[in-house]
């Protein structure tokens, strides 16, 4: 059986908000290491990989591996009934038909109990090769969100060019063109507000902004975002949170 108690409902609510538009149904894979999810969007262009480590829950118990097949829209509806500060407990039996969710207010004067029907999802687990990326860019998550939003007004695509001079996001469309260049900065007081660029070689890749804008729905989960790129491979966008991460992979646009 699974029993996982999470101190802040907000973490799960924000996580759902960040993935439910890309993925409709997914298995939440529960093991003694924690709860993970890996799913592609319908077009097979983007992939979401979520990990909520066991140590992010208190307590966490999972006797044997379980795949909880969940409709993310349904889970999102149920989580709407939880206040951000509520304590959430997830429970499932071995070979479960339902997931039980309990929301307790901080001072335990209100307890809400929901049961959600589970579904069978036949989902392949993808092999994502370990990659030593040529460019690793860490920047404020809000900055990345703003750049993607602003450039999506210009074009459907953005070309990200990482070089020793900085990282340049450039778009060209019918109405004209625009770009934003970020230089490396160092803010020791507020590391989350710094931009760092680690580079072993220059990288230039083009991506659909529709997906990137979608990824930035994870902005409330983390102060910083990390973009990892190598030429001719998918982009990895990572939001690290306490007790886990939310990663997105995006296939590049290639010259026809």
């Amino acid at each position: 059986m699974l029993e996982a108690r999470l101190a802040q409902a907000a973490v799960l609510k924000k996580t759902l908000d960040a993935i439910k538009e890309l993925v409709t149904d997914a298995n939440f894979d529960c093991s003694d290491g924690g709860i993970s999810l890996q799913a592609m969007d319908n077009s097979h262009v983007a992939l979401v990989s979520l990990l909520l480590r066991a140590d992010g829950f208190e307590p966490y118990r999972c006797d044997r591996n379980l795949a909880l097949g969940i409709n993310l829209n349904s889970l999102s509806k149920v989580l709407r009934s939880a206040q951000n500060e509520d304590i959430i407990t997830l429970k499932a039996a071995d070979d479960p038909d339902n997931l039980s969710l309990t929301f307790e207010s901080q001072n335990q004067d209100r307890i809400s109990e929901y049961e959600m029907k589970l579904m069978d999802i036949d989902q392949e687990h993808l092999g994502i090769p370990e990659t030593a990326y040529a460019a690793v860019i860490t920047m404020p998550a809000a900055e990345f969100q703003r750049i993607c939003r602003d450039l999506s007004g210009i074009s459907e695509s953005v070309t990200i060019d990482a070089s020793k001079d900085g990282v340049k996001f450039a778009s060209a469309g019918d109405i004209g063109n625009g770009s934003v260049t970020l230089k490396q900065t160092h803010n020791p007081e507020e590391p989350a507000l710094s931009t760092s660029i680690e580079l072993s070689e220059s990288v230039t890749l083009t991506f659909s902004l529709k997906y990137l804008v979608n990824f930035t729905k994870a902005t409330p989960l983390a102060g910083a975002v990390t973009l990892q790129m190598s030429n001719d491979v998918p982009l990895l966008v990572e939001y690290k949170m306490e007790g886990g991460y939310l990663r997105y992979y995006l296939a590049p646009k290639i010259q026809d």
């Binding site: 592609m40 097979h44 998918p234 646009k253 026809d256």
Partner: peptide, 14 residues
Amino acid sequence: KSKQSSLSSFFSGA
């Protein structure tokens, strides 16, 4: 002109 690639070209089992 650029074309959207698919993750299946990069990840096994996709």
